[in-house]
Design a protein around this nucleic acid. Structure first.
Lengths: 162, 162
DNA sequence: CTTTTCGTTCTGTAAATACTGAACGTTGAG
DNA sequence: CTCAACGTTCAGTATTTACAGAACGAAAAG
């Protein structure tokens, strides 16, 4: 079972800390950490509870949270009446995509700010023009990268999808 | 004074909400919001308190937080013994740069995970190889963009820097 | 020297958050 | 039918967080 070795626990905790920095609960990060190195990639809720020493409620909630984030997915159940989860192919791309979408939200806000400064001196507008430029750039450019990355990983992907 | 018109307040609150999504306190976002549309770009702490109807302690703390984030900077004080702040040129680029650095942190974590799976079947390693690829890509590619963007805004920048 | 005006910092508080354990409804096994 | 296993949800708790207000120290103005 995953999570016995010290190296594994350290890895899991690092993923958890990373997720925390990304605004997810630490426990969600731990679940994800396990599903990134588990030997059958698919793990049941109980297995996750066992190797994390966490309560059913936490793990259940966090698993569904991660499904919502697009990072993991329900896996075909080997045993009936048991929920299995596994990391979702392309999960990281999806994760990045959503983060970038939030970032790009400032693009619209900056535009609204520029309307407020309509007619004012150009020196007052540069602040928002910078925001406009940066996030328009992020939006357009990053969209392109994600598509390219998506294509690239499609080619090398061979796993079964449900 | 900024923050009287309904449109301004709405803009400020949107920036605050954006900042909250980015993990900053909402009040920090409000301070930033004001400094994005304020008519003299430089505003004193008291002016910020007034137009936000917030306490000195909050505004003072949040201003220094934003300075630490690289989004605003202390401005040359027109009146002695009064702290002025203004939006910092290139602040958004710096902001993006730091966010991307955190993201790129997963690159190293993924590598450590791959070491844990050393010798294991390739199908078990794909999860982490995807993470490795995505975040190496983000790291290298985005660093390039930021530099290009930096150059581009250098050309169009003419404001005095302290 | 005294007073006032800043900014910072400390303390307190209300609210949000992350978790646990218990209660619940469901479904397969005996 | 009864019981056990499983997942979800609810209630409770402990920690953290975002703010306000008071106390404090420094420095200019009087």
């Amino acid at each position: 079972m995953v999570g016995k070795e010290i190296g594994e626990r350290h890895f899991i905790e690092d993923v958890a800390l990373f997720c925390e920095q990304m605004g997810l609960p630490r426990m969600a990060g731990r679940v994800l950490g396990v599903l990134l190195i588990s030997d059958p990639p698919s793990q049941s809720l109980n297995e996750l509870c066992d190797c994390l020493q966490a309560s059913k409620s936490s793990v259940s909630t966090m698993a569904r949270l991660l499904v919502g984030e697009g990072l993991i997915e329900p896996a075909p159940c080997l045993v009936p009446r048991r929920d299995y989860f596994r990391f979702k192919d392309g999960g990281w791309l999806e994760f990045m995509r959503r983060r970038m979408e939030v970032m790009a939200g400032l693009h619209a806000i900056a535009d609204r700010g520029l309307e407020l400064l309509d007619g004012k001196d150009e020196s007052l507008r540069t602040r928002l023009e910078e925001a406009h430029d940066v996030f328009e750039f992020v939006d357009s450019e990053f969209r392109g990268w994600l598509e390219r990355m998506g294509k690239r990983s499609d080619k090398s992907a061979g796993r079964d999808r449900p």
